[in-house]
Design a protein around this nucleic acid. Structure first.
Lengths: 100, 100
DNA sequence: TTGGGTTGCTACACATAGAGTAGCAAGGTG
DNA sequence: CACCTTGCTACTCTATGTGTAGCAACCCAA
């Protein structure tokens, strides 16, 4: 019985709304549940809790009771992978704004 | 009046279900609507059409009537950016399968 | 010890996004 | 003309996400 490819699995996870945003908000420092909530523009606790559950299962975040939620090493690695996306995105937006 | 940051905009787009998959399926060769549909496991035309509309608006794909849908240069650039994700994903899955 | 403030989280009702199926109009081919 | 494929729309139903209220556990000061 085989799993689906790793890339498919992570793409599924990252395609859930708020997942990337949550990872991004944890980039610098651990945050408590409620800090995360307001960092994401008062994201509803229903969704936040659900995403945090997924992220913990994926071992991308942990919940250190004294510090709050924080990225694991894996989580930080993912963030690194996403860095080039930012540069691409800027070029993309510029090209889009330009005339056809 | 300012747009939201480029990175946020592309993350929003990529967070819609099937968007990455569609880009992926177009990686090698143009596909017709129906080829794309079956490449994505008989994705419903409702969603496929909607995603293709978004992707065309984002200038990541074009619809060449004689060849079908294909990636633009921008689209192919995005695919390049995603390549490191694949390697990360494999390491991630391995670590996840391993004991805590 | 009591009142206030956190904390993480659940319950529930409502809204939007996606899935599944049918089928149409346009075009090409025999 | 009959028959195929094309891209796509209409429709219904389910999954996913949103918004608000509020609870139990904890800490801290009076």
């Amino acid at each position: 019985m085989n799993q689906k490819p790793a890339i498919a699995e992570i793409v599924d996870l990252l395609s859930r709304k708020w997942v990337m945003r949550i990872i991004w908000e944890l980039r610098a420092t651990p945050l408590t549940f409620r800090q995360l909530q307001s960092a994401c523009g008062d994201l509803s606790p229903t969704v936040l809790n659900n995403r945090l559950k997924l992220l913990r299962e994926a071992r991308l975040t942990t919940n250190n009771p004294s510090q709050g939620y924080e990225l694991t090493d894996m989580g930080r690695g993912l963030l690194d992978v996403y860095k080039p996306l930012n540069e691409w995105a800027i070029a993309w937006q510029a090209a889009r704004t330009a005339p056809p």
